[in-house]
């Protein structure tokens, strides 16, 4: 197996980079979508059950099935991978963002309004910073999950280490089948841990000392 890694080092590192890049970009996109939707949901109480329904049902959808549904619409390659990863990444962040934004005390919001802070400023200066630790917790869950979903997205010839897993599965019984599957799996786990560490650091840096637990 060592020889396998050494022989394909350039390809493995390139695929690792692609994998992380796919996840990071999709999670970033998902964060923006999730926070915007959460803002909408917390402003209009009627939307809340709808959002909860979508997050619960969404997570039960098999990612392979969703990928299959997307193929006729957007073809193969990077695009379906980005769509699928972003879709799943959005759900945990959305759920946490709703909880986080709702947990901001109404007294504080009234205080902000009473001081003459507009809607936008109240969101940027009060609601978002206070909800942030909860949102980041969702972001971390979401990133871990996306590492796995990104591997499956390789089924539609998406980028990343997932390709190795499918190669391995296709060649079962062949010389390097186990190596392919194992290297990809271990690689994804290591990358996921590294990403989580990075997010932990970001969480520390972006959360006010006044509300750090």
């Amino acid at each position: 197996m060592w020889q396998f890694v050494v022989d394909r080092w350039a390809d493995i590192s390139y695929r690792s980079f692609q994998h992380v890049s796919l996840v990071v970009q999709s999670v970033l996109l998902a964060t923006v979508i999730a926070v915007s939707v959460a803002l909408l949901v917390t402003s209009y109480a009627k939307l809340k059950p709808v959002a909860n329904f979508i997050t619960s049902v969404g997570l039960t959808l098999p990612s392979l099935a969703l990928l299959g549904l997307l193929l006729p619409l957007v073809g193969i390659g990077t695009l379906p991978a980005v769509i699928v990863v972003t879709f799943y990444a959005t759900l945990p962040i959305l759920r946490n963002a709703v909880v986080g934004l709702e947990s901001v005390s109404p007294n504080l919001l009234e205080s902000a309004r009473g001081m003459g802070m507009g809607q936008l400023r109240t969101f940027a200066d009060v609601r978002l910073p206070l909800a942030w630790p909860v949102i980041v917790a969702g972001l971390r869950v979401s990133t871990q999950m996306s590492m796995g979903v990104a591997a499956i997205a390789a089924y539609a010839l998406g980028p990343g280490l997932g390709g190795y897993i499918f190669t391995g599965l296709a060649q079962i019984g062949g010389a390097n089948a186990v190596n392919y599957a194992l290297v990809a799996t271990i690689g994804i786990v290591i990358l996921a841990l590294l990403l989580d560490l990075g997010l932990l650091v970001i969480e520390r840096l972006t959360t006010s000392k006044g509300i750090r637990i």
């Binding site: 007294n107 205080s111 009473g114 200066d125 009060v126 910073p129 206070l130 006010s208 509300i211």
Partner: peptide, 14 residues
């Protein structure tokens, strides 16, 4: 000026 019970300070600000 607007002062409410407990001060209602923003906990994430100094």
């Amino acid at each position: 000026g607007f002062v409410i019970q407990g001060g209602s300070l923003f906990p994430h600000m100094t």
